[in-house]
Amino acid sequence: MRIVVQEAPFDLGAETSRFAEGHKDQGAIVTFTGLVREDGGMARMEIEHYPGMTERAITKIAEEAVTRWSLGDTLVIHRFGPMQPGEAIMMVATAAPHRKDAFEAAEFLMDYLKSRAPFWKKEIGPDGSDWVAAKDEDEDALDRW
């Protein structure tokens, strides 16, 4: 299990290749990458986080995934700070003997990272800035697990 919280951009290809190496007993790798989407003329995004709690919360979520699914490995990288549209905000990767576990665990990680990891997104546009509001559907998404 590898959890990374950093300000710097990450290399999606390099991270995925590195994660995929040396897993002879795993038949499936699923990766998900979240990008900054250019919504309504947004110029940039800024992500604030809670140093210390962020790493603890993500570790707890990843450990829960390991107990629920048969996983060979998990990776979560999540950035904070300023970023431009098109940049990668975060990625998760899961390795499992079979694809069903890898897909489900990746979705579980994403659902929980959305509303249980202490990050807050702010969108900055030509007319000012706004904190992104959490959606009810993101909270509801946790019920299925």
């Binding site: 979240g34 809670y50 709690m53 994403m110 990891a117 990050f119 807050w120 904190w131």
Partner: peptide
């Protein structure tokens, strides 16, 4: 103790 709005990660 920390106070904050609902989280918006991912």
């Amino acid at each position: 103790v920390a106070f904050f709005p609902p989280m918006t990660g991912g």
